[in-house]
Computed example of a mutant assay.
Amino acid sequence: RQLGRNTRRVFKYDSISTEQWTAFADNLDKLCPIDPLIFDAWPLNQKCEYLHSRIIKAANSTLPSVTVGNTYVPKKPKDLESLCQSYRFLSKVAKTIRSLHKTPISYSIHYETKWSSYYIRLNNLLSLYKQTFVTPIILPPFLRDARIDDFANLLQMLENMTLLLRSLLLLKEKEFQASSIQAKIDARNDNFTNDISTFIESALSRTRRRIVLDRVFIDHPTHPTLLTSPDAIDQEVIEHFQNFVPITSTPPSSIQDLPERWSNAYAPLADVSPAIFDSLMDPPTLDEWSSTISSMPNDKAPGPSMISYEMLKHLGPSASTLLFNLICA
Rank of each mutant, 00 (worst) to 15 (best):
M306Q: 08
D186Y: 02
A301E: 12
I218M: 08
L213D: 13
V237G: 02
R215Y: 09
G303D: 01
P246W: 10
N70Q: 13
F192H: 11
Q177L: 11
K184C: 01
P268G: 01
T132G: 01
W21Q: 05
K57F: 09
D79N: 09
Q242S: 06
D282L: 04
P140C: 00
P141Y: 06
D195K: 01
D149K: 03
I218T: 08
L322Y: 05
F133T: 05
K92C: 10
S197F: 09
D287L: 10
T193C: 10
S291E: 14
R188L: 13
I233C: 02
A329C: 13
V68T: 10
A270R: 15
L126K: 04
S180W: 08
V237L: 08
V237T: 05
R144H: 13
D145G: 03
D195C: 02
S205I: 10
M296Y: 11
R210E: 15
N70D: 08
I185W: 04
Q85M: 02
N298Y: 11
N124L: 06
L169N: 04
F199D: 04
L155H: 04
A265C: 14
S61E: 15
S91G: 10
K184D: 07
D231I: 13
C32P: 13
P274N: 03
Q156H: 13
M157Q: 12
T248Q: 10
A94E: 07
M281A: 14
L323F: 07
P36G: 03
L280A: 12
T321K: 07
V272E: 15
V93Q: 07
P74Y: 01
L122G: 01
G316L: 04
A178M: 10
L63F: 01
S290F: 04
C328V: 13
C48F: 15
T207H: 07
I276E: 04
L280T: 12
R98V: 09
S108E: 06
L323H: 08
D26P: 06
V134S: 11
K30P: 07
L323C: 05
I109R: 11
D282W: 00
Q131R: 09
S294C: 06
P224E: 02
I38P: 03
K300I: 14
A319P: 14
H223S: 14
S254I: 07
I218Y: 05
I233N: 00
L163K: 10
P297I: 01
F199N: 03
T250D: 15
S91R: 15
S167F: 09
A41G: 12
I238G: 07
V73K: 12
S291W: 07
E159H: 05
T62H: 03
T250E: 15
P283I: 03
I238H: 14
N160S: 11
G316M: 00
T193A: 13
P268I: 05
V73I: 14
